[in-house]
Deep mutational scan, measured.
Amino acid sequence: QNEKLANELKSLLDELNVNELATGSLNTYYKRTIKISGQKAMYALKSKDFKKMSEAKYQLQKIYNEIDEA
């Protein structure tokens, strides 16, 4: 289960640069939040902690959705 979550989180991290570029014309909230979420996700992957990875995955998905809707 950890392996599956780690792969999903890696996949979301692969999209980080594209989504970060998409924040160029948006409010600074999005820029700041996506950077923080990305850092948390990288830390969670290194720690291999299921709870941290779950939270990081949720945060990344949430900010990606917010950027898409903005």
Rank of each mutant, 00 (worst) to 15 (best):
N7E: 12
M42T: 05
K4W: 08
L26Q: 03
Q1I: 12
I36V: 07
N7M: 13
K10T: 05
N2P: 06
N2I: 15
N19F: 15
L13S: 01
E8I: 05
E3W: 08
A22L: 14
T28Q: 12
K48N: 12
K4I: 11
Q59L: 14
N7Q: 13
K10F: 04
L13W: 03
K51Q: 12
F50E: 06
N2A: 13
E69L: 12
L21P: 03
K51A: 11
K40R: 11
L60A: 01
K4V: 09
L60S: 00
A6E: 10
N19L: 15
S37I: 15
Y58D: 12
F50V: 07
Y30A: 03
L21Q: 09
L5N: 01
S37F: 15
A56C: 02
Y43N: 13
S47T: 13
A6L: 07
Y43P: 02
K62Q: 07
L26G: 04
G24R: 15
I63Q: 00
L21K: 10
S25M: 12
M53H: 00
K4Q: 12
E3M: 10
L13R: 00
E20T: 15
E69I: 13
Y29K: 05
N19R: 15
S37L: 15
E3F: 07
I34W: 03
L60K: 00
L21Y: 08
I67D: 01
D14M: 12
T33F: 12
E66L: 10
I67S: 02
L60Q: 00
N17M: 13
L9D: 00
E66S: 05
K46A: 12
L45Q: 02
A56Y: 02
D68V: 14
V18K: 15
K4P: 04
T28H: 13
K62C: 11
E66Q: 09
K52F: 05
Q39M: 13
Y43C: 13
K35G: 04
A56R: 00
D14H: 09
K48I: 02
V18H: 12
Y64N: 02
S54K: 11
K62Y: 04
K46G: 05
N17L: 14
L5Q: 01
L45K: 01
D68M: 15
N2T: 15
Q59Y: 13
L9T: 00
E3R: 07
A56T: 02
N2L: 15
Y30V: 04
G38A: 14
K51W: 10
Y64A: 05
I67N: 02
A44G: 01
S11E: 11
L60N: 00
I36E: 08
K48S: 05
N7A: 13
E15H: 12
I63W: 02
E3K: 07
L16A: 02
A44S: 03
N27V: 05
K35V: 08
N2C: 14
K40H: 06
R32W: 12
Y29F: 05
L5V: 05
S37Q: 14
D68W: 15
Q1T: 10
N17V: 13
E55D: 08
S47P: 00
D14Y: 08
D68T: 14
S25Q: 11
R32E: 14
K57P: 00
Y43Q: 15
L16Q: 02
S54I: 12
L21R: 10
K51F: 10
V18C: 13
Q39L: 14
Y64H: 04
N27C: 15
M42A: 09
K31R: 08
K4A: 09
Y43D: 15
Y64S: 03
L45M: 04
N7F: 12
Y58E: 14
F50I: 08
N2F: 15
K48H: 06
A6C: 06
N2Q: 13
F50A: 07
I36R: 08
E66R: 06
N27R: 08
L5G: 00
N65Y: 11
I67A: 02
E15L: 15
E55T: 06
A41K: 00
K35F: 11
D49G: 02
L16S: 01
N17K: 14
M42F: 09
Y64Q: 06
I63H: 01
N27W: 04
L9A: 00
A70V: 07
L5P: 00
A70N: 05
T28F: 13
L45S: 01
L5D: 01
Q39Y: 09
L12H: 00
E20C: 14
A41P: 00
T33L: 15
E69C: 10
L9W: 00
L12S: 01
T33D: 03
S11Q: 12
S25H: 12
L12M: 05
E15S: 11
D49I: 04
I63T: 03
N17T: 13
K62P: 00
L5W: 02
K48Q: 09
L45T: 01
I36D: 06
N7S: 11
E66I: 07
A44R: 00
L45I: 07
L12A: 02
T28E: 15
K51G: 08
N19D: 04
A70Y: 07
E15C: 14
A70Q: 07
Q59F: 14
V18L: 13
A6H: 06
I36H: 06
I67H: 02
L13A: 00
A6G: 03
N2D: 06
D14I: 07
E55N: 05
T23Y: 06
N7G: 10
F50M: 08
I34T: 01
K57F: 14
Q59D: 07
G38K: 14
Q1E: 12
L5M: 06
L5Y: 03
E8H: 03
N27M: 06
K62T: 05
G38Q: 11
V18F: 12
K46F: 09
K52V: 06
E66P: 02
V18M: 12
G38C: 14
S54W: 12
T28K: 11
G38P: 00
E3N: 08
Q61I: 13
A22P: 05
K4F: 08
S37V: 15
K40M: 13
L60H: 00
A41G: 03
L21E: 08
L26W: 05
I63Y: 02
A70R: 08
T28S: 14
E66C: 10
R32S: 07
S25T: 11
Q59T: 05
F50S: 07
L60Y: 01
I36L: 09
A56L: 04
S25P: 11
Q1N: 10
N65L: 12
S11N: 10
K48E: 04
G24M: 13
Y58I: 13
I63E: 00
G38T: 12
K10I: 08
A6N: 02
K4Y: 07
S25A: 11
V18R: 14
M53A: 01
N7Y: 12
K35P: 01
N65E: 10
M42R: 12
M53R: 00
K57N: 03
M42V: 09
Y43V: 14
D14R: 12
D49H: 03
F50D: 04
M53C: 02
T28L: 11
L16C: 03
D49Q: 03
S25N: 11
K40Y: 14
Q61G: 03
T23R: 06
N2R: 13
N19H: 15
D14A: 12
Y29I: 04
Q61K: 07
L9P: 01
K35W: 12
F50N: 06
R32Q: 12
D49M: 03
Q1R: 11
A6Y: 15
E3Y: 07
L26Y: 04
K40D: 05
I36W: 11
Y58N: 10
Y30T: 03
I63R: 01
K51L: 10
V18I: 11
A41H: 01
T23W: 10
S25F: 11
L13P: 00
